[in-house]
């Protein structure tokens, strides 16, 4: 039943309830927006550049596997101190490759695939070279980035 429009008390009460609900709706709208605007834990997508851990702990003639996006990357410090980085996934059957200090090159344990320190497949089943990334030191940290 439509209420009598002349009842000012009832109208005021209705407006008050309406306003309260509207405040609730506004809260439901602005809460996500404010949270969205606050910076996320990782401030940018790990697409092009990723931090690969402290530089000091990567000794010459060793390698380190780090996540790059959703795939592993292999950072290698050469004997002369130079840094290089490669995609960590073997081009044969997608096992994760590793650095072999004794051979001084990259090796895949799954089917004995070998890559040299430019990422070229030099022996075994891998059909093509590993992608290589840029690697450099930024302060105390190693940073690797995709070549664009």
């Amino acid at each position: 039943m439509p209420a009598t429009p002349t009842n000012p008390d009832r109208r005021r009460w209705l407006d008050w309830v309406l306003g309260s609900w509207f405040a609730g709706v506004c809260g439901a709208v602005f809460f996500p927006v404010v949270r969205y605007l606050s910076p996320p834990e990782i401030s940018e997508p790990p697409t092009l550049t990723v931090k690969a851990g402290p530089a000091a702990t990567l000794a010459p003639n060793t390698g380190r596997l780090v996540p790059f996006g959703q795939k592993p990357a292999l950072v290698v410090r050469l004997k002369n101190g130079e840094l290089r980085a490669f995609a960590g996934t073997c081009t044969h059957l997608a096992c994760t490759v590793q650095y072999r200090p004794d051979l001084e090159h990259i090796w895949c344990a799954c089917h004995n695939g070998h890559y040299d320190l430019t990422g070229r497949n030099i022996s075994g089943p891998p059909p093509k070279p590993l992608d290589s990334y840029e690697a450099h030191e930024q302060g105390d940290e190693i940073v690797i980035s995709r070549r664009t």
Binding site: P2, A3, R11, L14, L18, W21, G24
Partner: peptide, 12 residues
């Protein structure tokens, strides 16, 4: 809740 109250408001 808002819609319900608004409905009442519109009818009034």
């Amino acid at each position: 809740g808002f819609l319900l109250t608004l409905g009442i408001k519109i009818r009034s």
